[in-house]
Amino acid sequence: MSSVAASNISAATAPKVRRRVRWSSLLHRVFVCMMYFFMLSPLIFVVWMSFFVDAIPHFPPSGYTLKWYESAWQNSSFMNGLVLSFQVAAVASITGVILGVAAALGIVRNGFLGSKFVNTLLLSPLLIPGIVAGIAIYLFYMRAENVLDTDIVGTFGGLVIAHVCLTIPWTVRLVSTGMAGLDPSIEEAARNLGASSWAAFRRVTLPMLRPSIVAASLFSFIVSFENLELSLALVGPGKTTLPIAIMQYLEFNLDPTIAAVSAVQILLLGIVMLVTDRFVKLSQVV
């Protein structure tokens, strides 16, 4: 009885509802497409421009070529920059993730006095302009050099330590969110079954945090790899990161070599993201 009545009602109102749904979903799709275009257009233009034949790009191009890729390949400051950026990003993200996981663990689990403050402090590098932080770190390094009587500014170690400040906030954020979503009784169950706190953490909690940690590693790598402002004051002669090499090149040239370098960079980071996404669905973590 009641189901018949219900289906009558829905039959009567269906056309109107369906039309409204179709309109709003169309509008929604248009809007989403516009957003994508807005976000992707710089990337599309950069990649496109990297194939222009003209040294001073203009539209439409007079032809297409691969010579800018060759020129980028032969430019040693780009290649060295790429290698250095890769090394710094790798070491800084691994270090940052380890420290960040430890920090998140302390903050979420123990809730000690001042843990809120520590949390804010660890996230603060996200808020301070990179150039300000870079100069502050530079001044601090100069002081430290005097006291310790060693070189810090311009060394690999100095650069990595500065970049660790960039990578920690990402890990703290992602991992503490992931940790807050865990049911504490799961780790308790492990303890109850005879696991010491360390064994319970290693065998149970850490594997459950894997998605957050993978995502944190990825973002740490990217923020370090593409960082320009913080590194500016800290690199030494002949040892520049890729973003700085690009900037220096731009001071005197405006040809599509830059576009070619950028296209390669986009490709590399794109691959890293896709590979990561195969192991952990990033959209579910971030």
Partner: peptide
């Protein structure tokens, strides 16, 4: 972990990344 009590929780608290057999095995390994 030294008391050797067996606890069952309200929300099951199984290890999500382990199979049923691995869940049971965990305590034995410990």
């Amino acid at each position: 972990h030294k008391r050797n009590t067996g606890m069952v929780f309200q929300r099951y608290a199984l290890f999500p990344h382990m199979t049923v057999a691995q869940n049971v095995s965990f305590g034995l390994e410990m």
